[in-house]
Design a binder for these strands. Structure first.
Lengths: 252, 252
DNA sequence: TAAATTAGTTAGGCCTGCCTAATTTACCAA
DNA sequence: TTGGTAAATTAGGCAGGCCTAACTAATTTA
């Protein structure tokens, strides 16, 4: 596996292409240029280069498509971005549009090790939600409010964590393990389990708390689970699938 | 004030120069090159450019010095770096050398707004230390340990926050406000107060939790406090000085 | 004090990632 | 079927931040 190193800019291109394909089915040079804020010739050039290194499939005057390698890279970046943004909004209480910008700035520079720890912190606060409202109130007041530090706001209703999750958005959900889902079921990752080694492998595949997905193929001891997240296919062995807590919509 | 924008690389150079001046009194081309991992001609060129824009004072074959503008920029970056590193180590439990590298990666891309929130989070955990050991234990177990998530380690002795502070390093300290110190006293910033506007101004000056300093000039309603931190002079009005909690060594 | 060593500079190049201007292609509509 | 228009490409340039090779200045050291 020749690990070609993608520059930040190249990764951005891949992410934009992925987004466009998910949103509009096809990725055109012009739209890529618009989103990246560069001129069309710059995009043409970049696509040519990415296609030479086999991250996109592209020939003159055709739509841009992602190769599996490109999809992997794009998805990785994209999910990091999503998580960071949620972290900033949910934990640090940063305003949406700023959080978005900040996430784009930082996504390239955050190592998996650190990301892992941030995820754990995020998960810790999720746990607190269940049994330690007081601490959360305090945290909210400290971190979020302008005049923090001393008073508790008893009116604090919104929660810190997972506010972008479906169950925070008016839908009623239940939690279960990914391994228990059936083919075709949709869900959203809530929590990754404790095994560090395994957790990192999952993180590297771009499956982070907040990732929405559909189960495409239910695996077993032999064959892997295959899920579709962000338009990208991700394979997980059963051990990993048993370590991922997910939220699914209540079926009643 | 013509806000010349410094590139990342240029900021790095300034920080390295500051470090060298603090450590070895003078900054030589060769040593800058070594630390930055570039060749000497690259440094010469960079210094020439920085000197043209008045961030360093430099003429051929002489030592490099920082101008006030350069010092400000360097100090800002440097303190951001220190804080991030501490945050990674103390809160996220990341291993020292990785934390250091990660801090260097991220320091350029973290906005003051986000930095502010991270500082508040850090301070929140400091507060917890006083009255909520249980939550900290949980957090420690969740975020730091490999097998997190479920068990509480009753043996957890080290604390999360401020472990790089003098009082964590075997020295006995007391906390007070910066405004109350006398000229010549040394201290370390522990906490910034609640006023967001003011707090940001302080953060922008590079005075963050963890910053060590000496009070050079005690101010009053008229004249500012002047402190020396990291070899850089920082001025604060009395309002700011009253908002900064510091640790000083016990004088007994 | 002359040779050797080390630090720093000059000159010339390279690569990335952009740009503008001019041209080509593709498609749509009359 | 023929313009017209929009999308994309080609060509040529530029700046930042690096590099190597060759040279010069300053400092040892013998």
């Amino acid at each position: 596996m020749t690990q070609t190193i993608l520059s930040e800019s190249q990764q951005d291109y891949l992410k934009i292409v992925l987004d466009l394909i998910n949103e509009k089915k096809v990725a055109r040079i012009k739209e890529i240029a618009r989103r990246k804020g560069v001129s069309m010739p710059s995009v043409t050039e970049a696509m040519r280069k990415l296609s030479k290194e086999d991250f996109v499939q592209y020939s003159v005057r055709e739509f841009v498509e992602l190769t599996p390698a490109g999809e992997t890279a794009a998805h990785r970046l994209s999910s990091k971005n999503m998580f960071l943004k949620n972290f900033f909004i949910d934990v640090l209480g940063i305003e949406n549009s700023i959080a978005e910008k900040e996430a784009c700035e930082l996504e390239h520079h955050l190592s998996v090790a650190t990301l892992d720890r941030l995820i754990l912190l995020y998960q810790f606060l999720s746990e607190c939600k269940k049994n330690d409202q007081l601490t959360l109130h305090l945290l909210k007041n400290c971190v979020r409010s302008a005049e923090g530090m001393s008073e508790i706001d008893p009116e604090c209703k919104s929660c810190f964590v997972t506010s972008n999750f479906p169950h925070q958005m008016g839908k009623s959900t239940v939690h279960t393990l990914l391994a228990k889902l059936n083919r075709g079921q949709k869900g959203q990752v809530v929590m990754l389990g404790p095994d560090t080694e395994l957790r990192r492998r999952i993180i590297e595949k771009g499956l982070l708390p907040g990732s929405a997905f559909v189960l495409e193929e239910k695996g077993d001891a032999e064959s892997p689970y295959r899920i579709l997240s962000d338009g990208c296919s991700v394979e997980l062995d059963i051990k990993a699938a048993n370590m991922i807590e997910v939220a699914i919509e209540q079926s009643n």
